[in-house]
């Protein structure tokens, strides 16, 4: 369910599509799903750490986003990551922001 709108069944994000013929996905079996989930969290944290946020898995089925001051947010769908992160960080995450790119390139 979409935790922002309450609409059911919004978690079929293109990066994690339901496996079906012709569609590229790592969402195939339990092992592949868990491995991709761990990689995705690491990749997201690389960006989120710019605003000192951290993402982790919550009970193997949801995401937990935390701020350095202890604010937390739980959501089910990957499509909610960036709206949630922007709300929590109060400042946006702009992939075209040159300050952020400078910071990423220096990592």
């Amino acid at each position: 369910m979409c935790s922002l709108c309450g609409i059911l069944g919004c978690d079929d994000h293109w990066t994690n599509a339901v496996a079906r013929p012709g569609v590229y996905s790592h969402n195939t079996d339990r092992q592949a799903r868990r491995a991709e989930g761990a990689r995705r969290i690491a990749a997201a944290n690389r960006v989120l750490s710019y605003r000192r946020l951290a993402l982790s898995e919550w009970q193997g089925r949801s995401y937990l986003l935390c701020s350095p001051t202890g604010a937390t947010s739980v959501f089910d769908a990957l499509s909610h990551l960036w709206p949630e992160a922007e709300t929590m960080a109060t400042r946006g995450f702009d992939p075209l922001d040159e300050d952020m790119l400078d910071w990423m390139e220096a990592q």
Binding site: H13, W14, T15, N16, Y24, H26, E36, R39, R40, A42, A43, A44, R46, V47, L78, S79, L81, W82, P83, G92, F93, D94, P95, L96
Partner: peptide, 17 residues
Amino acid sequence: VDWTRFGVWLTLLLHRH
């Protein structure tokens, strides 16, 4: 291309722009 990093990038790019 690293699929996972690509997914994070394009998702954020389209979210924002």
